[in-house]
Simulated assay, not measured.
Amino acid sequence: SMPVRGEKSSRRPPREGRPLRANRPCSQSAAKIQVCPALATRRRSRMVNRQMPLSAAAVASLVLFVAAFVVALPAPRVDAASPPMLIILSPANNSAVGNGSPLLISFIVFNFNFTQPGTNGQTNAPNEGHLHVIVDGNYTELIVQVQTIPLSLPDGAHLIRLQLVNNDHSPLSPDVSAWLSVRMTHGPAGGAPSITILSPKTGTTVGPDVDVSFAVFNFAMVQPYGQKDAPNEGHVHVLIDGAYSQLVANVETVRVTGLSGGSHTIALQLVNNDHTPISPVVSASITVTVSSSTGTVSAAGLTTGELGAVGLGALNFILLIVVLAMLRGRKKETP
């Protein structure tokens, strides 16, 4: 029974941690000490209802709102407070490009927006524009994006400049440029050139005219026409007893004529396109003795006269064998 107001209840409130009976409703005192199971169940139900996901229409409306906000944002631009930078990645400075290949330049830029010049209403803007390619002081082409730049250049040394410019083609202030020195060649980009004489050998007896065969390595033979010097490229000078005789540019056999009797030194020297010796000097030489007989000397070291004498002797020997065979045949026929 419920106590009368003003009277003290004879029931003691449940102690903390004391389990409530399942069939006893939660009293106010018990709810203060621990959560009533029935009350906890109602609270959890309310929380679940509050955490129900949004409907599909609400989600779609939210997505459209965010998309419209993002589209309305201005396009990101380079911070004008940061100065532009331009770096050439390859090839390395002072490198050689061999075998007649084109020059391929890779570069990268920072804090700079590439734009196509000539757009209607276009004006200069901070850190915006394009790139000029300048070869040996002469404008070559215009670049509007980061890319590999191919350049077909003549043989020789060249100075390349990449320059960032405004939309009206004027240089940035301060100027932003990158420089590159390269050497173009039809020869190999690396390796030491060399030359060797194949025939005749030193000490050979020759005639006034002799064919000299030789081979070159790591060196491109080109006809000189006034082009710039290039690494591992040029032609061969023929020297007789230290004096210039002739040049060879496209073959590896040279005929030396008009040698006087006696000993002579024949030298072959690798030279640049401007006829100066390559550095370090590369050459090969032989010493031969010119006989009194006339005629061109073969690779075996015999003059044409000597070759003729050998051929005539061989012919006479063959005729002698034929005659002996005929006489032997006649003796067999005699009874």
Rank of each mutant, 00 (worst) to 15 (best):
6 G>C: 12
6 G>Y: 08
8 K>E: 11
9 S>Q: 13
9 S>L: 12
13 P>C: 13
25 P>G: 02
26 C>I: 02
30 A>C: 13
33 I>Q: 11
40 A>L: 15
45 S>G: 09
50 R>P: 02
53 P>L: 00
53 P>F: 01
54 L>Q: 04
59 V>S: 08
60 A>E: 14
61 S>A: 15
63 V>E: 15
71 V>L: 15
72 A>M: 15
73 L>R: 15
74 P>R: 11
75 A>K: 07
78 V>P: 06
78 V>R: 11
78 V>W: 05
83 P>M: 05
84 P>C: 01
85 M>W: 06
91 P>C: 04
97 V>M: 06
100 G>W: 01
102 P>G: 00
104 L>V: 12
106 S>M: 09
110 F>Y: 11
114 F>M: 09
140 T>S: 13
142 L>Y: 08
149 I>V: 13
151 L>V: 05
158 H>I: 00
162 L>R: 00
164 L>M: 01
167 N>S: 14
167 N>I: 10
176 V>Y: 06
176 V>N: 06
180 L>I: 04
184 M>F: 02
184 M>I: 06
187 G>K: 04
193 P>E: 03
200 P>K: 04
203 G>C: 04
206 V>M: 10
206 V>H: 02
215 A>Y: 03
221 M>K: 09
224 P>Y: 07
225 Y>W: 12
226 G>I: 14
227 Q>C: 07
230 A>Y: 08
233 E>P: 01
239 L>T: 00
241 D>H: 02
243 A>W: 08
247 L>C: 10
248 V>D: 05
253 T>N: 14
254 V>M: 07
261 G>S: 13
263 S>I: 11
266 I>W: 05
277 P>M: 08
280 P>N: 07
281 V>M: 12
282 V>C: 07
284 A>W: 03
286 I>R: 01
293 S>W: 09
296 T>Y: 10
300 A>C: 01
301 G>L: 02
305 G>K: 13
309 A>H: 07
309 A>M: 13
311 G>Y: 08
316 N>L: 12
318 I>E: 09
320 L>E: 07
320 L>K: 06
323 V>S: 07
326 M>A: 12
328 R>Y: 01
329 G>I: 01
332 K>I: 04
